[in-house]
Design a protein around this nucleic acid. Structure first.
Lengths: 339, 339
DNA sequence: ATGATATATGTAAACGATTACATTCTTATG
DNA sequence: CATAAGAATGTAATCGTTTACATATATCAT
């Protein structure tokens, strides 16, 4: 194997600055006081040489791995790329490096990634989990690696988490449709072993109950968190003897699929079908019918998760934390409301 | 900071097996011959102790290791997330781990990431570069870390690359508009220090020249590769005494911005303005006017880049490679053509 | 000025692996 | 049987940091 030598080590910097390696190290880590004069000299030497410390050496010495594993369930879903960007921005100004894994909503792939992270002994893990079952997370729980669950939770994985208040968001969305006069409000959601799906369904049902609207199982379809799943679910609803007059869709990709089916059947939004969907996207403004949505603060979700994780790494024994962010209902045309 | 100490080092294994650390190391790496008897003893000790070698120590000692750095210019742009997904899928079935960095189109951030990767001694780098200037890439060139440029190239960075045939794509798009009868064809593109911008502009101009349509500088606007940039550019074109009747937009985010301006001015597409844009997105089908686009094979771009990089790592002295993929013109409504 | 005290810096030993080189043990050959 | 050649193993240096400890320098009260 070819040997990669970065000539610029701490020794080189020390020589150029005319100080010892210890002093340079102190300047870098800020762990100890260094006189302003020398600090300035060292800083200049570092800049001039373009020095940056060797991570392997540092890790070896301090006995911690300066890496954060991020395992997401769908790397191409704008929701998660938003989170990812938030995570990245926080880690960028930390000592940690971001290792990315894409589980593609497949628990087996997820487990592969997690195992690899565990045996590397990474400093922490941020996970958007895909499975609701415990066997996936036993090793993880045993490993005692600091960890934050993002967007989704599991009762088998008791860790810090950052999530959206899905029940309330879903409640609000449903209520919005009901207030516009709808009684037959359909619901399209994701697989029920995922916490967000359960919660959003719960919010939907609670809103109906609260408004004395009977819950009809026919109007509820749970499919795959993908475009295809949304399309299939919509078809199912459109085939009902009595169609819903309004619809809540609990995921952005499913929304896309549902729209596909809706346009195919030439159904007018909001006249023939009023719509509220989860997730805002930049494209919304250019859509045939701009969508009324629950916008989720994805970037902040990621930021919070990363900060929380760094916190826990510093402070492993602090009590479990759960941060819950609110989605924001943004009224546009698709729900049929003027304001 | 909590110290993660795996007490089980190579020394412990060596002691239990009654051999030297060198022998254990040889067993692990398979780098040298070890007698079957000792090999068996060592293997057993490893298994009994649940030993796995410390990555940091190994990395420090041997230099470059099993990590690939991926630095993208915009993590939230669907174009790059497509690439990222492709890269990830290839690395997933390799021994390498993916380290992600987001430069946000900022050369300084990009350089930070690159320096960090270099000093980590990563096994390879995939880069969507943001700067057209050489000073950013000198360290990189010197480092002799295997590397692949994706989507964008720089003459200051002579490395393997995987790109789109932008000139031809742009030519084709322009030609398409011209064939529909347009003579005043506008162009909105990105910053000219980025290779894709140059090439797309070139394709546009070549098409015009080829069709004997004069090139008018007023009709060409180069802005930031962002939504805001697209909006501003569009405003500029709309303020011309004589507006273009057709328009080519060379980037997906800029397209979004341009649409924003277009809708604001209540301009009909394609009647008042025929449109062709770069990049297809899933949302396209649901747009007010579905866009005629040059679809780019982003996922494959990523796959190719990752494969190419692994190739080069295995085989550092093979000749420079450049893979050029074709974009595909997909005719929809926005250009005003039936087919 | 003088020591006592506080502050800044340097020296050198880790961290856990790999590997050049030295050493010991086999084996084969005359 | 002696010995050279070759195979197996061990010893110790090394990778680039951090940091405990030793040392030097500055600060202050007397």
């Amino acid at each position: 194997m070819r040997k990669k030598k970065s000539n610029i080590t701490i020794k080189v910097v020390a020589d150029r600055a005319g100080v010892s390696t210890a002093t340079v190290s102190r300047v870098i880590t800020g762990s100890d006081v260094v006189s302003p004069r020398r600090r300035k000299r060292v800083d200049r030497a570092i800049k001039e040489l373009g020095y940056s410390p060797n991570r392997a050496a540092r890790e070896l010495r301090i006995g911690a791995v300066l890496k954060i594993g991020v395992v997401l369930s769908d790397i191409q879903n704008p929701f998660f790329t938003g989170c990812l960007a938030g995570i990245e921005s926080v880690l960028q100004s930390s000592d940690y490096v971001l290792i990315l894994g894409n589980s593609k909503e497949d628990p087996r792939i997820e487990k592969m990634h997690l195992n690899s992270l565990i045996s590397d002994g990474v400093g922490g893990i941020i996970l958007a989990l895909t499975s609701g079952y415990d066997d996936c997370y036993q090793d993880l729980a045993k490993s005692d690696i600091p960890m934050v669950a993002i967007d989704r939770e599991s009762k088998y994985l008791l860790v810090d988490s950052v999530v959206i208040d899905n029940v309330s968001a879903s409640f609000q969305a449903t209520e919005c449709l009901a207030k516009l006069g709808h009684r037959r409000i359909g619901y399209i959601g994701g697989p029920l072993h995922i916490s967000t799906s359960q919660e959003r369904l719960k919010g939907y049902k609670e809103a109906l109950t609260n408004l004395d609207i009977p819950i009809e199982d026919d109007l509820i379809v749970n499919g795959q968190y993908r475009q295809g799943g949304g399309c299939a679910a919509m078809e199912e609803l459109l085939n009902l003897p009595e169609r819903p007059t309004a619809l809540l869709i609990a995921n952005n990709l499913m929304t896309l699929g549902a729209l596909e089916a809706i346009y195919q059947h030439d159904i007018q939004i909001p006249e023939a079908l009023a719509l509220v969907a989860f997730d805002d996207t930049p494209w919304n403004i250019a859509l045939k019918t701009p969508l009324t949505v629950i916008a989720q603060p994805t970037y902040q979700l990621g930021e919070f998760a990363a900060k929380l994780l760094l916190d826990r790494i510093k402070n492993p024994d602090q009590p479990l934390q759960k941060i819950m962010l609110k989605g924001e209902l943004i009224i546009r045309d698709s729900c049929g409301s003027k304001i």
